[in-house]
């Protein structure tokens, strides 16, 4: 009589141990393999490169969609609004721009010229490493 109730209690946590094991392994996988960064919006497919060295993902990236719309931090902005967010000073980091692969290149250069006119000497075009 005394033996039965503790046995039931004992068997319960033992079943969860493999579950915790798997969950823990998944946690470690995502910790190591993934990088935490603001996601690129789904409508935007970045241009692909093959052999360029990789750079760490950044959050302050200006996104340019294939219709030329500029998105920053999830909001649609005009060029002037973006330039307000990135004042050009001597110490400022290069502006990081990620552009859709189907965007007209002339349109991209037009936008980048406005950045240049505002005093940004360096602009970094972010692309994605494709399969080699």
């Amino acid at each position: 009589m005394k033996l039965t109730p503790p046995k039931k209690l004992r068997s319960d946590p033992e079943n969860t141990i493999p579950l915790i094991n798997v969950v823990f392994l998944m946690l470690i996988f995502f910790l190591i393999a993934g990088t935490i960064a603001a996601p690129v919006s789904r409508e935007l497919t970045p241009a692909e490169t093959r052999e360029m060295p990789t750079v760490p993902a950044k959050t302050d990236v200006v996104q340019i969609h294939n219709d030329g719309a500029i998105m920053y931090l999830g909001k649609r902005m005009s060029v002037d609004e973006v330039l307000e967010m990135f004042p050009a000073t001597e110490m400022s980091e290069p502006v990081k721009v990620i552009a859709d692969k189907t965007l007209n290149a002339v349109r991209l250069v037009e936008i980048l010229e406005k950045f240049r006119a505002a005093g940004h000497q360096k602009i970094r075009l972010i692309t994605v490493k494709g399969s080699p």
Partner: peptide, 23 residues
Amino acid sequence: LLFFMLTSTFLRFTGFDLSVAAA
């Protein structure tokens, strides 16, 4: 686990440093 699954990206980014010729 949920937090890391939802926030991590597996894209590998590369970048070009460009200078834009002034008009």
